[in-house]
């Protein structure tokens, strides 16, 4: 059943509209701030319930605050997402049709890549093969900048990967669209783009870098959790941020 919301819920939702995505830690701070602003009792360990209340009223409007993990640091995040694909949702004007076509080509590149990344050279090349109005080199670079600014892509040294916001919102789409290509993490069962892969050809499971860090933490000899072969990759450090460990 849907519940009555208060101004603290509304302020939280409005902030999510403004920022699009937030880490769990920030979400807790924000939750507290919203309660203080509207003089409401705040139970810091009840963030999930608080968000559930908002979602119960949002979901009929084809929106949701959805939780997901960052492939970067393994932290949980919350993103405000759209859940429908209709004539109305396609009326959005943030990006032109040819810009969206290129974005889909970038997703193709990233999903089919080994390392979950697409180089700017490859992106510029696919911009040359568009069916809708071609984007010039400068326009493509402007678009890439905007996609990073709007938090749909991340850039590092000329390579682009899907942002946490993008992965959280697009998960159902990517799973449906790229059924055969999409990789899934053996540990957390979420989609995996940037991950380590077991080198045993008859195994080949994937594990997110942060999941690798957590799984192998404190083990002397890392072995594949599926085939027990030696795990030959470098084991990253667990990146625990401040007080954020219990869950």
């Amino acid at each position: 059943m849907s519940r009555q919301l208060g101004d603290h819920h509304r302020r939280f939702l409005q902030t999510m509209m403004t920022i699009g995505i937030t880490s769990e830690k920030e979400a807790k701070t924000l939750y507290q701030h919203c309660c203080e602003t509207h003089k409401t009792q705040c139970a810091p360990d009840r963030l999930e319930e608080f968000i559930e209340a908002i979602n119960s009223r949002l979901q009929p409007m084809f929106m949701q605050i959805r939780k997901g993990m960052s492939e970067e640091d393994g932290q949980q995040h919350y993103a405000l997402v759209n859940t429908a694909e209709t004539d109305i949702t396609r009326m959005t004007s943030d990006y032109a049709d040819n810009e969206l076509e290129l974005f889909r080509k970038i997703m193709d590149l990233i999903v089919s890549s080994e390392n979950g990344k697409a180089s700017s050279t490859d992106i510029l090349n696919s911009a040359d093969m568009m069916t809708s109005k071609k984007l010039k080199k400068g326009e493509t670079q402007q678009l890439l900048l905007r996609l990073v600014q709007d938090k749909w892509l991340c850039e590092s040294q000329g390579e682009y990967n899907l942002s946490t916001r993008c992965i959280i919102e697009m998960e159902p789409y990517i799973r449906a669209m790229y059924q055969d290509q999409v990789k899934v993490c053996h540990i957390c069962h979420n989609m995996a783009f940037q991950c380590q892969i077991c080198e045993n050809p008859s195994c080949g499971i994937k594990i997110h870098n942060p999941c690798v860090a957590r799984y192998f933490k404190g083990r002397m000899e890392p072995h594949c959790p599926a085939c027990d072969d030696f795990w030959p990759h470098e084991i990253p450090e667990v990146r625990e941020l401040h007080s954020l460990s219990k869950r």
Binding site: R10, R11, Q14, T15, T18, I19, E26, T29, L30, H33
Partner: peptide, 17 residues
């Protein structure tokens, strides 16, 4: 139009563009 007294971004503890 916003119905909240102060805009969410103005006093927010998280960075708003």
């Amino acid at each position: 139009v916003n119905n909240l007294d102060t805009p969410a971004a103005a006093a927010s503890p998280v960075k708003c563009p």
